[in-house]
């Protein structure tokens, strides 16, 4: 009999259960794929349980889901301190040592990351309606996550943050202003010798796409949720054909895209921030252009 593999986390799973024990995705639902190839990530069902090591994570609620971790004595998770909703007194919480504090403050990232160790329950929630996305990680797996989307992870997952390297400037001389459309930093998560579980929180709905080698896609920079480390990214700037309108119209209505190319997975969230202003772009970290 062929082994059943969850189509969302790609880990061998139990086809008879209501949800995948590794990522919580419902098993008994039809695959929903748009004509363009985006696969809708089905929301984790209310009260679905994810198993990792000897511990569990139960996802409760559907509007602003809560991740309720039942940790055994040997397992621990890390998360941003503002995500704690409640905890049992038996759970031990400590701050993680975070190098590069100034850079994190500058990038608006939480300076204090917490570590919780069992035994006991601790529950986390975020501050906007959306979905909890569970990414089980096998050894050697590396994903990049847009800043502020990280929710929680097992301590078997390594965490570092790198400069996104994606920027453009407006203005000149002393008026030069730097813009980081995908964020100043990007979070990088990697597993080495052990399995791990990474949880993200995405406002709105989540869609996933597998890009073939060198296959490009342009997305709103702030809609990026995560991507495999193998997926490349750079800016792509489009200038519309302004026809008979003034030449400045072309520059005022330019679109700044995040251009991604495969191979690998890309996930977007349907809620994103309004793109930044429309000043003339004077420099970039490297961008392709289309002038229609």
């Amino acid at each position: 009999m062929a082994e059943f593999v969850c189509r969302y986390c790609r880990i061998p799973s139990d086809p008879t259960g209501p949800s995948c024990p590794s990522c919580g995705a419902p098993i008994d639902v039809r695959d929903v794929v748009s004509d363009s190839g985006w696969e809708e990530q089905p929301p984790i069902r209310d009260m679905a349980k994810i198993a990792f090591g000897g511990s569990t994570c139960q996802v409760e609620g559907t509007t602003v889901p809560v991740a309720d971790f039942g940790l055994n004595g040997n397992e621990s998770i890390f998360f941003s301190h503002h995500s704690v909703l409640w905890t049992e007194p038996t759970v031990t919480m400590n701050a993680m040592s975070m190098a590069g504090g100034w850079n994190r403050v500058r990038a608006g990232l939480p300076l204090v990351m917490m570590n919780a160790r069992g035994p006991g329950h601790i529950a986390l929630s975020e501050d906007s309606p959306g979905e909890v996305i569970a990414l089980p990680m096998r050894p050697g797996h590396q994903v990049h996550v847009r800043e502020h989307r990280f929710f929680a992870a097992t301590t078997t997952v390594g965490y570092k943050w790198n400069q996104s390297g994606v920027w453009y400037t407006t203005g000149q001389g002393d008026d030069t202003e730097y813009h980081y459309p995908v964020g100043y930093n990007i979070d990088a998560f990697q597993t080495d010798g052990a399995n791990g579980l990474l949880l993200l929180h995405a406002p709105g709905n989540v869609f996933v796409r597998n890009l073939a080698a060198r296959q490009p896609i342009c997305i709103q920079p702030t809609s990026l949720l995560y991507k495999d480390a193998s997926v490349g990214m750079a800016l792509h700037i489009e200038y519309p054909n302004a026809g008979l309108m003034s030449w400045s119209t072309r520059y005022s209505y330019r679109q700044v895209w995040l251009r991604l190319w495969g191979p690998g997975r890309v996930a977007v969230q349907s809620v994103y921030e309004r793109p930044e202003g429309s000043e003339w772009i004077t420099g970039t970290s490297g961008a392709t252009e289309t002038r229609w």
């Binding site: 701050a95 975070m98 917490m114 501050d127």
Partner: peptide, 27 residues
């Protein structure tokens, strides 16, 4: 919670029974 040279105070509400407690997931 100590982070490097800084110390952060994390305040939590300790609820002691008997009785019901209601919580909301967004704040």
């Amino acid at each position: 919670v100590k982070t490097g040279m800084m110390r952060h105070g994390m305040f939590l509400a300790e609820m002691t029974g008997p009785g019901r407690v209601g919580i909301q997931s967004m704040y």
